[in-house]
Amino acid sequence: MKPSLKSGGLGFLAGILNGLFGAGGGLLVVPMLEAQELPPQKAHATSIAVILPLSLLSAALALFQGRTLDWPAVWTLLPFGLAGAAAGAFLLSRMNPLLLKRLFGAVMLIAAVRLLLR
């Protein structure tokens, strides 16, 4: 298959996840870019370049569909999110990333069960 077709298909699948769930495109894009022989660092950076415009479009479509946006929540979240991003960068070399991934996985399983039973 042509590389551009592969990339187009990859973007299509990531777009479906982003448009449907508002997240999750990176889950597909990073491993699929790595499968196209991109080094992990480039795959992660490139995935942001792919996902960012798709997120912008997803948000625009959601607003166009008349979904309500909780602006006060967004303004509250942003400074904390940026501070968290800086803290995460600081913690990166000081924490065991595998342990973090396992903890994250456990939290996701609990949340999934909670959502399924709601």
Partner: peptide, 15 residues
């Protein structure tokens, strides 16, 4: 370019 173009269609389908 191909990823974002494909993604635009995907986002539309997802939305």
């Amino acid at each position: 370019l191909p990823s974002i173009l494909g993604g635009v269609f995907g986002v539309a389908c997802g939305a």
